[in-house]
């Protein structure tokens, strides 16, 4: 501590205290522990802007009729406070006075993705990985979750502050609405946008839905959150069959059968009509040994063969086991079956 130079050098760059006020007398404190005391206040100051941020109280939230209606519509129950629901609808804004849903949304995001992934791998253990990730995304992506938010009947706060003032609306009425900084899709030429960009309405809806799920998890527990995801997100329909795409189906089927030590596929013409007419129809069966793997029909033999191979591949990749209990279900006793994956060459 003899040298002043040495002291200045060890001041952590994360120190808030040093940069706080100019009038404060210069009295650097030496902290060798960068990650415990010093980092936390900096973290908060970065992400919540400043200490003026308030949390919406239960009393304030009770003054919003649309918030109470939304709470009842989602059957959230007594355990789920209205204040959390109000926070779930508050996205990060530049001039926001209230704490945003960013942290709740992170909890919800992981939960939804975990539960949907778990369900999909249990239902379709053989899906190719590209199809699998897109199928999960069909449930948890922005388009899907924003549609869920609209189905919830969440209203967007579209009135400007001056309009609200003129119509005599209080701040509390807007707690029941989705509040966010709307992104400007096309700024005027020559205008440069500084600072944080806004978000689109779809993304705001996504954050709100995720945050509500996060809130259910925090207040009502894991099983309630899973039930919520089951009821509102996994109940939606995704046609996985239409997501599969095969460039060379016959070749792929050959590789698949070879890997499983099965006889190579053989296509056989099973029925046909109108060979010499303008509208012929052929039915081709794809066999491996004696077993019929798939059947396709088309206006040429080539087309029918290709469809037959596609149907055989679909029958393999869309296999669904009888036991559809997810691994986190306490009633599932045996381990999960997961396929070795698709074949490459």
């Amino acid at each position: 501590m003899a040298s002043h130079r040495g002291m200045v050098r060890v001041i952590p760059r994360t120190s808030v205290r040093f940069f706080k006020t100019l009038t404060e007398p210069y009295s650097p404190t030496i902290s060798t522990d960068l990650y415990t005391q010093e980092k936390e206040p900096r973290f908060i100051s970065l992400f919540q802007n400043d200490s003026r941020l308030k949390t919406i109280t239960e009393e304030e939230a009770k003054l919003s009729p649309s918030l109470i209606a939304l709470h009842a519509r989602l059957n959230l129950g007594q355990d789920f406070p209205l204040a959390t629901l109000a926070r779930a609808l508050t996205c990060d804004t530049k001039d926001g006075q209230h704490a945003s849903n960013s942290s709740l949304s992170q909890v919800g995001k992981r939960l939804v993705k975990y539960h949907v992934t778990e369900n999909m791998i249990t239902k379709y253990p053989r899906l190719p990985i590209a199809v699998f990730s897109k199928a999960v995304n069909a449930y948890v992506g922005t388009e899907s979750l924003s549609s869920v938010g609209r189905l919830f009947g969440i209203e967007v706060e579209s009135k400007s502050p001056i309009d609200k003032y003129l119509s005599g609306e209080t701040l509390e009425t807007s707690f029941g609405k989705l509040r966010f900084d709307s992104a400007i899709s096309k700024p005027e030429s020559g205008v440069k946008h500084y600072g944080k960009e806004g978000i689109t309405e779809d993304v705001a809806y996504k954050f709100a839905v995720r945050s509500i799920i996060g809130g259910v998890y925090l207040h009502k527990g894991e099983s309630a959150a899973k039930k919520f995801i089951d009821e509102y997100i996994l109940s939606r329909k995704v046609d996985v069959e239409s997501m599969l795409k095969f460039e060379q189906p016959q070749r792929m089927l050959l590789r698949l059968l070879r890997r499983n030590n099965l006889p190579a596929p053989v296509s056989k013409l099973m029925a046909e009509t109108g060979r010499h007419s303008v509208a012929p129809v052929y039915v081709v069966g794809v066999f491996s040994g004696d077993s019929l793997l798939g059947e396709g029909q088309g206006s040429s033999i080539r087309e029918a063969t290709m469809r037959g191979a596609v149907n055989a591949l679909k029958a393999h990749y869309l296999y669904r086991p009888l036991n559809e209990r997810v691994p986190s279900d306490p009633e599932r006793k045996e381990p999960l079956y997961v396929d070795e994956g698709e074949v490459y060459f």
Partner: peptide
């Protein structure tokens, strides 16, 4: 690979 990618889908309510 003999197949490439998947077709994007969005869940329906």
């Amino acid at each position: 690979p003999p197949y490439n990618g998947a077709i994007k889908a969005v869940s329906v309510a």
